[in-house]
């Protein structure tokens, strides 16, 4: 009996230690999550319902009167239709999203497949795709800026052309973002492709299946969950991604290549930031979350319901 009691105590003591250990290990990340993720988001939502008020020479964020609680949202919606700067930003966000979806994603899958199948030239594609991932974003920005600014004007026969200020700027940005995003896509697609069982491929090869058919009938359906993740994440980032504009232009990007992520960002940081604009920027963020969240969930639902599914 005594032995059993001792065993029980020991086991409880062991469990207690384990619980304490787990609690200690999780406490910090949970605290960080609560403060820096939940707390910040909650504060953003609250801020969107406030305004910056200066009373007795002291400034503070006060809740708007109930009757005009939606003032910041009204301003954000109004600007979406009337403010040329916001219209440009919205248009560019959509352009960048569509380019990502219709161009970068298929290209990433294509390049990944070349690398995966070790088709001649795959090493070159590997270097090209991974290079931006191996260097820091700022170094990439500087290298790209210098190279393109020197080379492109001569290719176009206009030595005085300022690539990042003239009509070329949007095209160059689309190219840059497609390129730097390529590497991350390739890494994930390659991970998904290498998980495809060899047996399946071998069966196909024994059946005399062509490379294109193998890609279409085996590879694509099996990596579709990864594609779904990219499409869903793309929709979620449609209104928040600033596409490296800040790295290139600081807070002074030409308005006609701005996008919504950048528009909101420079309202709270840099030369144009003002305390009174924070609630407006928050409202903008909340507004787009309200639009993006249901679209994201809907896209996810549709892709999972109607997209090819396979378990392996």
């Amino acid at each position: 009996m005594k032995a059993i009691k001792e065993k029980t105590n020991t086991s409880f003591a062991g469990k207690k230690d384990r619980y304490i250990f787990i609690a200690c290990m999780l406490a910090v990340p949970i605290l960080f999550f609560c403060v820096f993720s939940l707390g910040v988001k909650l504060n953003s939502v609250l801020l969107s319902l406030k305004e910056y008020v200066v009373e007795d020479k002291k400034g503070s964020y006060e809740f708007l009167p109930f009757s005009s609680l939606g003032k910041n949202f009204g301003e954000a919606i109004g600007n979406l239709f009337n403010d040329q700067e916001v219209i440009w930003a919205f248009k560019n966000s959509v352009i960048f999203y569509l380019v990502g979806l219709l161009f970068t994603m298929p290209l990433s899958i294509f390049i990944t497949y070349i690398i995966y199948k070790k088709i001649p030239g795959s090493k070159l594609f590997t270097i090209m795709a991974y290079l931006p991932q191996m260097l820091s974003t700022i170094i990439m920005t500087l290298m790209f800026k210098n190279l393109v600014e020197k080379v492109l004007p001569y290719l176009l026969g206009k030595p005085e052309l300022s690539v990042f200020k003239d009509y070329t700027k949007l095209g160059v940005f689309i190219y840059y973002n497609s390129w730097v995003n390529l590497g991350a896509n390739v890494i994930l697609y390659l991970g998904a492709m290498t998980r495809i069982p060899e047996d399946l491929i071998e069966v196909g090869q024994l059946e005399g299946i062509s490379l294109w058919k193998e890609f279409r009938l085996i590879t694509l359906p099996l990596i579709f969950p990864t594609i779904t993740v990219f499409i869903v994440a793309g929709v979620a980032g449609l209104f928040t991604n600033q596409n490296n504009l800040y790295n290139f232009y600081d807070a002074e990007a030409p308005k006609d290549i701005s996008n919504l992520g950048y528009y909101m960002f420079v309202r709270v940081i840099g030369n144009h930031a003002q305390l009174r604009d924070y609630p407006y920027a928050s409202a903008f963020g909340v507004l787009f979350t309200m639009v993006a969240a249901p679209i994201t969930l809907l896209v996810k639902y549709l892709l999972e319901k109607f997209g090819p599914s396979a378990e392996f």
Binding site: S162, Y167, D256
Partner: peptide
């Protein structure tokens, strides 16, 4: 198109 800097705006082809 946006204008915000005379020298640069007069220089840019657009």
């Amino acid at each position: 198109l946006p204008l915000n800097n005379p020298l640069e705006n007069f220089k840019a082809s657009a």
